[in-house]
Amino acid sequence: MIEGFRLGVFSRGVTLWDGLDFAFGDAAAWFVTGPPSSGKTLLLSILRGERRPDAGDVVVSGESLYRGNPSLARAWRASCGYVPEQAVADAHRTVGDLFRRSALAGGGVRESEQMERTDRLLEMVGLPGALEWRISELSISERMRACLAAELLRGPKVLFCDGLVAGAGVPFWEMLWGLFRALAREGNTVVLAERRIPERWGLAAGDPEPVGPFRLYRLPVQGVKGGPG
């Protein structure tokens, strides 16, 4: 369970938001929508333990990320995967490099296992045989899907995605929908931040919970182990 208590952020001399409470249950796919410049990326950074909030705290499984033991915060970050909205710094690398460093961050991934999983993941996100492709030669959609596949190589317990659904594009929404449900069914948590939710997903998720400038949806996941079903 990831909980944000009375979260507040002061940015560019103004209060972006303050006093927000969030609760992201385990083994679920969560969808946070918000208008441009509302602080969605910032919220994900705070939840991942990257950026200390100016007010409030984030508690993961009962432990404070910012007021507790720093090693716990590091362990939390190690268990998270993150697909950023932009991957400009990686433009000169290849898709294979993304997988290589992801495996390094996870540690303990055997070479043979890594190769097998890499091929499977690339195929899953619609990029078969893309290992040697340069990031700079990929479209936005391909970059985001390659980043997603590289993050999944480590098998993160919690996956944060910033603008992935919009970036991947309509043709891949079905694939992503299936992937998020599968991850949740396996007991993982997925937190997505987007400007808006695809219509079908919104209909399936039902009424969102309004939290400050954001709308929080819980995507339905059928047959979750130990979940509400």
């Binding site: 991942r48 915060a73 590091r74 970050r77 998270c80 993150y82 710094a89 460093r101 390094l104």
Partner: peptide, 14 residues
């Protein structure tokens, strides 16, 4: 390699 080091730091590598 700054992008890679930032990546590792973001994923809990001190």
């Amino acid at each position: 390699l700054s992008g890679d080091f930032a990546f590792l730091a973001e994923r809990g590598v001190p």
